[in-house]
Design a protein around this nucleic acid. Structure first.
Lengths: 135, 135
DNA sequence: TAACCGTATTAATATTATTGATACAGTTAA
DNA sequence: TTAACTGTATCAATAATATTAATACGGTTA
């Protein structure tokens, strides 16, 4: 199910997380399927169990799997799958905040930007029958 | 003008770029002021000229200074740059905020992210006594 | 108890980032 | 031209970090 490529620049645990993400997203590993145990998977790939452990930790952090200590790890319900995107978003956000500080924009000022409701921020789900009719 | 802090986790060249950015943004180093030469600045700080060179490369890439080979490096005109950049930054920021909201991240949560103090966020090592900073 | 599960801690190692040593090239003035 | 400045490029030494492994620990189940 998993194949390692030692010509790949990426670290082993990253290859493994990527493969499992693919298998899970494609539905090949459905919700609640038990993942191979860290030891069996490690033995099968001839690497250290900790490397599998790290891959699984990542997968869990990103919401792809869940773990029951002593029992095993299982494929999570990814119908939402927002976890990964949120993490990526946070990274971007923090980077942008730092950049803004170099431009002389204080965090306080950023907070004010957050507080300002934007034009068109009024929960656009409300059907406004008196609108301009566009859309 | 520049002081190194060896207790600072950040690399030397990053400390240096940060200090100069501050000095330039605050107007202590006005437009067209000649920067200290890489060698003199290096000697003054007792570090390798290459470290200053790297800092200057960064500053130039970011538009804070310009260089004339063989003559020296000089403070660039940042009057437009800063306002322009801030506007651009705000656009990016608001766009990212909206994107985050689509991912289910509330503005309140974003505010909490802003509040987190970062490692190495303690600026203020520069002695700014209000002098004109000429040298 | 035994045989499985995941997890935490620490160390060895590989990779990358940072700084330094040195040589090269452009500008200016004597 | 030479001499004394300027920035720049290349490569090596070293510091910092990332990656993997060795090992021991605690939970679950039959």
């Amino acid at each position: 199910m998993i194949v390692l490529d030692y010509r790949d620049r990426r670290p082993l645990y990253e290859q493994i997380t990527g493969r499992f993400q693919e298998l899970i997203v494609k539905g090949i590993l459905p919700k609640d399927t038990q993942m191979p145990s860290v030891r069996s998977q490690a033995m099968q790939l001839s690497i250290n169990p900790n490397t599998i452990q790290r891959a699984y930790s990542e997968l869990e952090r990103e919401g792809y799997i869940y773990t029951i200590k002593g029992r095993g790890s299982f494929v999570a319900d990814i119908s939402g799958l927002l976890g990964e995107r949120r993490e990526e978003w946070k990274k971007q956000f923090m980077a942008l905040v730092e950049e803004g500080q170099l431009l002389g924009i204080s965090r306080q000022e950023m907070g004010r930007l957050l507080a300002l409701p934007e034009p068109g921020d009024m929960e656009g789900k409300i059907e406004d029958k008196g609108g301009d009719g566009s859309d």
